[in-house]
């Protein structure tokens, strides 16, 4: 399997590896894939009171392309609003990393991870804006 330079860069120096405490305020987690399929991605986002993703972390069990795809999306979603992050498409990921056809599923998984994290955020904080949560805390 020949990997592109960008995949290799992300694989050698993955950005934002790690975990947030999933109970921390504003943190949501998306976990997609299955061990049996050879890839599992965990993507965590930390959303600030303005609804902007201010930080992200990932852990990935999978091939180099899966690791690179998740590393790349953590960079891309930082600073984006949830709605903006929702617009990221797997084709953009695949293109950026020059993924070969057999590795397209890695980019799909990364897109799914973003969606899963946002979904988790929305269900967790459903009906309760962060601002009021903040007020409650005070």
């Amino acid at each position: 399997m020949a990997y592109s330079d960008k995949v290799l860069q992300h694989y050698e120096n993955p950005r934002n590896v790690g975990s947030f405490d999933k109970n921390e305020q504003g943190v949501a987690t998306g976990m997609v894939g299955a061990p049996a399929c050879g890839d599992v991605m965990k993507l965590q986002i930390k959303v600030n009171t303005d609804g902007v993703i201010e930080d992200a972390r990932f852990k990935t069990y999978g091939c180099g392309s899966a690791i690179a795809s998740s590393s790349l999306v953590t960079e891309w979603i930082k600073g984006k609003t949830l709605d903006e992050a929702m617009t990221i498409r797997n084709t953009e990921i695949a293109e950026e990393l020059a993924l070969p056809p057999v590795k397209i599923h890695c980019s799909i998984l990364a897109e799914d991870a973003i969606k899963a994290a946002i979904e988790d955020y929305r269900s967790k904080y459903d009906g309760q804006s962060l601002l009021s949560a903040k007020a409650n805390n005070e």
Partner: peptide, 10 residues
């Protein structure tokens, strides 16, 4: 266990 083969080879 808990490590994917292709990434390990890489």
């Amino acid at each position: 266990n808990f490590v994917e083969g292709e990434s390990l080879i890489m």
